[in-house]
């Protein structure tokens, strides 16, 4: 449903009125405390539906302000469905041993975008499993390849912790192999 600006203002004003009446009629608790008058603000607000087809609702935030939570058009939802079911093939599925069927080195040669955290987590997960399984030689080799790739994108030291962990595994693996 598309609203023109004038009608949106009217709808919003009406919704604000119903929101404030919903708030005043909501069950409240007198046993709490608050910053303003010695009582925590425990009122329950009901979201006001602005457009039931898109899920657009008006809510009151914890600071007391009203906020419109924007709806989602049919087209946008279809796009998300396509991404979820067709591109991603549903949720992330990890069976025990799933990493045995993937080649971490081949993944490194492919176009991994190291700036994306989940991509980094996935590849670092290989190192951790190798370390856990005491496959120190393979672990050291993979960590050694990953560290320079991580360094390339480490702007403002944002992923220093991740690099440090790879460095730790590399160092320890070498020690344990001696």
């Amino acid at each position: 449903m598309h609203l023109r600006i004038g009608s949106f203002v009217r709808v919003t004003r009406n919704c604000m009125m119903s929101l404030s009446s919903a708030e005043s009629s909501a069950t409240d608790d007198n046993t709490g405390y608050s910053k303003l008058n010695g009582k925590k603000n425990q009122s329950v607000t009901k979201p006001v539906s602005l457009d039931s087809t898109t899920g657009e609702v008006l809510v009151r935030t914890s600071t007391g302000k009203t906020r419109v939570r924007r709806g989602q058009s049919d087209e946008e939802y279809k796009r998300q469905l396509h991404d979820y079911f067709q591109v991603q093939n549903g949720p992330k599925v990890t069976e025990v041993g799933w990493m045995d069927h993937e080649n971490a080195n081949a993944m490194l040669n492919a176009d991994i975008d190291f700036s994306i955290k989940p991509e980094r987590q996935k590849i670092a997960g290989f190192c951790r499993v190798l370390y856990y399984r005491r496959q120190y030689s393979e672990c050291a080799e993979l960590c050694g390849k990953l560290i320079p790739r991580y360094e390339e994108i480490n702007k403002n030291n944002k992923i220093r912790k991740e690099i440090n962990e790879l460095g730790y595994m590399l160092e320890r693996s070498r020690q344990l192999l001696q």
Partner: peptide, 18 residues
């Protein structure tokens, strides 16, 4: 709200297996 609108939220919030 996040799950149906954001692929990163889906990836972070839900993983499963057989």
């Amino acid at each position: 709200r996040e799950f149906v609108r954001n692929s990163h939220a889906r990836m972070a919030d839900f993983s499963t297996n057989k």
